[in-house]
Design a protein around this nucleic acid. Structure first.
Length: 882
RNA sequence: GGACUGCUAGCUCAGUUGGUUCAGAGCGCUGCUUUGACAGAGCAGAGGUCACUGGUUCGAACCCAGUGCAGUUCACCA
């Protein structure tokens, strides 16, 4: 069969993915093998996979495929997350485009639209996961709003409520005015912004005096219910018992005293607005102040504000500043650097707001989660970066606000009577029963009404490692017993609190066991210049287009090769190009090896060329063992990028550039069948080791290399055992390569083409021993027919070019005269380097303190270095004077 | 403001318990090479005061202290 010039991923990738699935290679069932369980961090159904997902999925696939090929029963569960706020925002926007107002719909009608949306986008994401080659078990696809999953979330809510770990109460929470819902602390992102500090004077009642306060938020003065100063502040001591008038609305509020006030800041006087600031709220509690909420849910001013009612808060700020200025209350404005909280999903500026919400009491859950990580039961990679953050968060964890004023999500299972008394139960029927028990029978005509709100998405995601195996809804079932706990969780470091810590809490609470043994945090994907990927910068590439252009293997390669463990990944298409070229390199090696198939010698091999005696074969086998050992260690330490680099270099340099050249038959020569067979085996195994990283090209070439029986697919081929490398063989290989390089350099310097033979090479015999196949390599690679070993008889002949080599001398004899001047110059430079080196060694060895204090091995090593260097110097001198 | 992490070749990063065959890799760069697997390539090569300043040590990219810069994260000072 004629093989194309370049490898073409498009034709092979879809075909192989379909075949793997048809053969159910990715479907897992509990059996006698050890499980290797990975649950995908479920992407939001709101959109498409971005490069961060691509990195995560690739890492997971590498680990899962490797486990599958290492005797484990690998199970990778795919799925998606309903992402309540984000999806609701998208669906509402979609409806608006269609001219439909969400508020005109019933809950049921709305949810129908939302589910349609989910079907469309969820499937796009799954298609991308497949295109990337991810070996997930599609039969296990889970969604956080599946029926059983929904039930699991509800039952966990009910259970935690009964355990008094969930409560309902009025608290100061973060309010997203755009999404019109409460948020958890984690969903608020702070940004430094340039603000203005306004100095406003408030009239003191019963005098002509004023007291000046400083604020960033003049639009909240209508919510002021006090002005506060430090009791130690001499400026204000005389104002005790005074009332203050709020400008514009003329409301009287008391002047209060509290240590909390920093006398240095601003004017040392604070306007207290308990409804709109957490600190003011606390002050209000302490001093029994009124709470006046001047903002509506959407961020406009409420009737309680009295003025500018219905105007947006930022617009109102401008107007109020204007009026304060006109009416003489605004004393000055100062530029002020501050920090504002933004909603992670809607980007709206978050408002502190007092509101009745549901909360999880986190402290009791945090303890075991902390212990799991600190005892080493759960290992975090890379540890040093995240341990401290993890610990701090858990030790200072605050209660988790879990209710959201949305429709897309699990509806809170609480039912209220007319008097707002409530019961929590799995469903309405149970609620009625529970109600009767707690409050007695319902009044005639009275009904219980379910809470309108839904739960935070993360309140469902935290059950993911359990409920994908129905561990909550069918506790103790066969699957949860087999697959739980999972092996490794791969995710972005940005959701360590949102998800990872909470999963550990839930796992400990409901399984009394960690949900996974290792957590591998990938970095953030940035562009080539280190900027975050964002839509507005247009630097976020389209995954499917990249796969179309380079192939999925190249995308995987490109993203892994530049992704050192735990560091941010600077995404650059150059890496993908490197991956594509790598595909092609392997493809061409295939073409070369296939070409030998028709040239196999008919007679059995003679001893000299038989594979076991052949230096190239022996050397490569050991080199491969060396890399296998290195890779094993690197992968165990989650250094996947390093492992891939080693393998890349093994294939490209050691296999293609050295090994294949060494065993390549000469022009019109036959190929040794024994060596051919070994070469195919090496190739097979190289593909196998590469397969987890680049599954498509390896599977394709594996099948082109040789006819395979049914079911002999690389995807499920089990790794064999491997030995430690023989270091002596590796050493000799290194010398051989150095010799060949020296020969090439010699040719380069003297403009000798490869076709022009070197008539004779003189080598010190002790370096390479008596392996004939090795000398055969030297002869062919350097294009020479004669190798002599009489180094001490190197004639003083213009045609002999003598160079120092590993403390010895080697000579190249040619037909033409060589340029001796440049040669001398190089040698002299080399000589002076070694002389300097020797001087240092001598200095060190004559230093009594060194000889006395250093370990004996080190001293011996230095002495050996000295001897070697002296030998080298002698060899160079001999050459120069020779 | 606190905490953490990093600073090694033009770029991205390795460098395990301190020992000048240890200053490395990939990409990029420079030169040469085109009938025989591969120009999506081959071969050869150039590039670094290991952020800075001190200290410990016979010896420091590596350990310690300080400084600078960058990044991450936490924090209620209006």
């Amino acid at each position: 069969m004629e093989l194309s010039k370049h490898y073409d991923p498009a034709v092979t990738e879809s075909g192989w993915y379909a075949r793997w699935n048809a053969n159910h290679y990715f479907n897992s069932f509990p059996d006698d093998r050890k499980p290797f369980t990975v649950v995908i961090p479920p992407p939001n159904v709101t959109g498409v996979l971005h490069m961060g997902h691509t990195l995560n999925e690739t890492v997971q696939d590498i680990l899962v495929r490797r486990a599958r090929m290492s005797g484990f029963n690998a199970c990778w569960v795919p799925g998606s997350d309903h992402a309540s706020i984000a999806t609701e925002a998208r669906v509402v926007a979609m409806l608006r485009d269609k001219g439909i107002d969400k508020n005109s719909l019933s809950r049921e009608e709305y949810l129908k639209y939302a589910y349609d949306w989910k079907e469309t986008y969820g499937n796009i994401i799954y298609d991308q996961i497949a295109k990337l080659g991810c070996s997930v078990d599609w039969n296990r696809t889970s969604f956080t709003m599946d029926d059983h999953y929904y039930k699991a979330v509800i039952s966990v809510f009910v259970d935690l409520f009964r355990k008094k770990l969930i409560y309902r109460g009025a608290r100061m929470i973060h309010w997203d005015p755009a999404a019109r819902t409460a948020l958890s602390d984690e969903e608020v992102e702070y940004q430094d912004v340039e603000g203005i500090l306004y100095f406003i004077r408030y009239p003191i009642i019963g005098s002509d005096e004023f007291i000046t306060i400083a604020t960033q938020r003049p639009e909240t003065i209508m919510g002021d219910t006090a002005v506060c100063v430090n009791p130690q502040d001499p400026r204000y001591k005389n104002l005790k018992g005074k009332q203050i008038n709020i400008p514009l609305i003329n409301r009287q509020v008391p002047l209060i005293f509290d240590d909390y006030i920093d006398m240095e800041f601003g004017t040392g006087a604070l306007k207290v607005t308990p409804a709109h600031d957490i600190n003011d709220y606390n002050l209000g509690l302490k001093h029994g102040l009124k709470v006046i909420n001047t903002l509506n849910e959407d961020g406009t001013l409420s009737p309680a504000a009295e003025i500018f009612v219905g105007m947006d808060r930022f617009e109102a700020r401008k107007k109020i500043v204007e009026r304060l200025r006109n009416e003489g209350f605004l004393m000055k404005e100062e530029a002020y650097a501050t920090r504002l909280g933004f909603s992670q999903r809607s980007q709206a500026v978050v408002e502190p707001r007092i509101s009745t919400q549901w909360f999880v009491n986190m402290k009791p859950l945090a303890g075991p989660a902390l212990e799991q990580v600190f005892s080493g039961a759960i290992r975090i990679h890379p540890g040093e970066k995240f341990l401290a953050t993890y610990k701090y968060w858990l030790e200072n964890v605050k209660d988790w606000c879990i209710s959201r004023q949305l429709w897309w999500g699990q509806r809170i299972p609480a039912w209220y009577d007319n008097k707002k008394r409530f019961v929590v139960a799995e469903n309405e029927e149970a609620a009625i029963a529970a109600y009767r028990q707690e409050f007695g029978a319902l009044q005639e005509g009275e009904i219980l009404t379910q809470d309108e709100d839904v739960l935070d998405t993360w309140f469902s995601s935290w059950l993911w490692p359990m409920e994908v195996f129905r561990g909550i809804t069918e506790p103790g079932n066969r699957e949860i017993r087999y697959y739980y706990p999972g092996s490794v969780l791969v995710t972005g470091q940005d959701i360590i609190f949102f998800w990872v810590a909470r999963m550990i809490m839930a796992g400990m609470e409901y399984m009394n066991e960690r949900p996974f043994s290792d957590v591998y945090f990938t970095g953030m994907v940035r562009d080539r210049l280190g900027r975050k990927m964002s839509k507005s910068l247009g630097n976020s590439p389209d995954l499917l287009k990249l796969i179309e252009k380079y192939g999925a293997d190249a995308v995987r390669f490109g993203i892994m090769i530049s992704s050192p463990a735990g560091n941010d990944l600077l995404f650059d298409e150059a890496g993908l190009e490197q991956g594509r070229n790598f595909n092609n390199k392997i493809w061409n090696a295939l073409k070369l090896v296939k070409g030998w198939q028709g040239r196999l010698a008919e007679s059995p091999d003679k001893t000299e060329s038989s594979a076991e005696m052949n230096f190239a074969v022996v050397w490569f086998e050991n080199r491969f063992n060396q890399v296998k050992n290195e890779m094993q260690q690197l992968i165990a330490a989650f250094k996947l990028s390093e492992a891939l680099k080693n393998l890349y270099s093994l294939i490209w340099d050691d296999f293609c550039s050295w090994y294949l050249e060494w065993v390549k038959p000469g022009y019109e020569q036959a190929m040794s069948p024994a060596i051919y067979k070994r070469t195919i085996l090496f190739f097979d195994e190289l593909l196998q080791w590469l397969h987890p990283f680049m599954p498509f090209v390896t599977e394709e070439i594996y099948h082109l290399l040789k006819d395979r029986g049914t079911g002999d697919d690389l995807c499920i081929k089990q790794f064999g055992a491997f030995a430690d490398p023989d270091l002596r063989v590796l050493g000799t290989g290194g010398h051989l390569r150095a010799l060949l390089t020296a020969g090439r350099e010699f040719r380069q310097q003297h403009q000798m083409k490869n076709t022009e033979p070197i008539s004779r090479i003189v080598l010190p015999g002790e370096i390479f021993g008596d392996n004939q196949s090795l000398y055969a390599i030297i002869r062919r690679q350097l294009n020479t027919s004669v190798i002599d070993f009489k180094t001490n008889e190197l004639e003083k002949d213009q045609r002999i070019h003598v160079i120092p080599f590993l403390g010895h001398q080697i000579g190249f004899e040619t037909e033409k005269k060589i340029d001796a001047v440049k040669h001398r110059h190089d040698l002299e430079e080399e000589l002076s380097y070694y002389q300097g080196f020797l001087e240092n060694l001598n200095k060190k060895l004559s230093n009594e303190r060194f000889v006395k204090n250093a370990r004996p091995e080190v001293v011996a090593l230095e002495k050996k270095k000295k001897e070697d260097t002296e030998e080298k110097i002698a060899a160079i001198k001999l050459t120069l004077n020779g």
